[in-house]
Simulated scan of single mutants.
Amino acid sequence: MIHEVDEALRALIRAEVLDGTEVELVLDAPTREWAARRNAPTVNLYLYDIREDLQRRSRGRQNVYDEQGTVVARTLPPRYFKLSYLVSAWTQRPEDEHRLLSGLLGCFLRHTALPAAGLGPALAATGLPVPLGIALPPPEDRAFADVWSALGGELKPSLDLVVSAPTALAPVYPAGPPVEDGLDLRSSELPPPPAEPSPPPPAARRRNRG
């Protein structure tokens, strides 16, 4: 699932931002050593955090149907995981970096989800959208300056891209056979009805009246 998101992002950026230019697109960690070795204009997509998107978690179970529409199994709903990317541009001039960042920002603002045509087989099989968010405020437990510090580099203009990717990897529980319509009762299985009391003979009725 993660590698499919990587490829979908690369295809989207190449098609709408780089558009045949000589700018490289990599997934490397932008450490100080990496920056020193870089010798070409580059857009960097660094995956730095993976956590479950709890706001999208669903409860209960879902039915699994066969070709005849019969329930054959039950499974848990797909779960979403937030993949956070640090998106940065690297050139010789700040103006060129800002121009690349502007193009990247516009690209992600035009899409509320990854294009369905670019999804890999695992993501496409879920039949669900793959939402993305760009430049949102970071969680309280994380700051962008901390990310750059952990990489050993200096703070640099960047975009925070968050992709919520669904995954259907959950246990599957076989379902029992379907219940047939109607109810078949056998009289031999039912207890006999209680016997009604017999009426008294006529002489007894006359004595009672006398």
Rank of each mutant, 00 (worst) to 15 (best):
A143Y: 09
P131V: 03
S158P: 07
D146F: 07
P94A: 15
E97P: 06
A113S: 08
P171T: 10
T112H: 01
L128Q: 04
G133P: 00
T126E: 12
L109H: 14
F108I: 01
L100K: 06
A150L: 15
V147K: 03
A135V: 02
P137G: 07
G120D: 01
L155Q: 13
R110H: 12
A165R: 00
L161A: 04
A145V: 15
L132T: 00
F144W: 11
G127H: 12
D141R: 09
V130D: 02
S164M: 06
L119N: 01
L151G: 10
R110C: 04
E140T: 10
G103Q: 13
V163I: 05
S102T: 13
L123N: 02
L151C: 10
F144Q: 08
L161S: 02
A135R: 05
P157M: 09
V147P: 01
A170K: 09
D160H: 09
L123R: 02
L161N: 01
E95I: 11
L136C: 04
E97A: 13
E97G: 14
L169T: 12
V162L: 02
A125Q: 08
G153V: 12
A168D: 14
S149R: 13
L104N: 04
L136D: 07
E154S: 13
V130A: 04
K156R: 15
L104A: 05
G103Y: 10
P137I: 06
E95C: 08
A135Y: 03
L119D: 00
H111W: 00
L109G: 07
G106D: 07
C107S: 08
L151S: 11
A168E: 06
A150W: 09
W148K: 10
A150H: 13
L101F: 13
E95L: 14
D146Q: 14
S164C: 12
V172K: 06
P166V: 01
P137Y: 05
L155I: 12
L132A: 03
R99P: 06
G118P: 02
S158L: 10
A116G: 01
E95K: 14
A168T: 03
V147R: 03
G127R: 13
V172M: 10
V130I: 09
P121D: 09
L132S: 01
L159E: 06
A150D: 15
S158N: 14
A170H: 15
T112D: 02
P121S: 08
K156G: 06
G103I: 08
V147Y: 04
L161Y: 00
P157K: 03
L109A: 12
S149F: 10
A113H: 01
D160G: 07
D141K: 09
T112W: 00
L155S: 08
S158H: 13
E140C: 05
T167E: 06
A117W: 00
L159Y: 02
V172L: 09
A116N: 01
A170Q: 13
S102K: 11
P138T: 08
L119F: 04
A165Y: 01
P137A: 07
C107I: 05
A124Y: 04
V130L: 06
G152P: 09
K156N: 11
P94C: 10
A143E: 14
L159T: 03
K156I: 08
A135C: 05
W148N: 04
A145R: 10
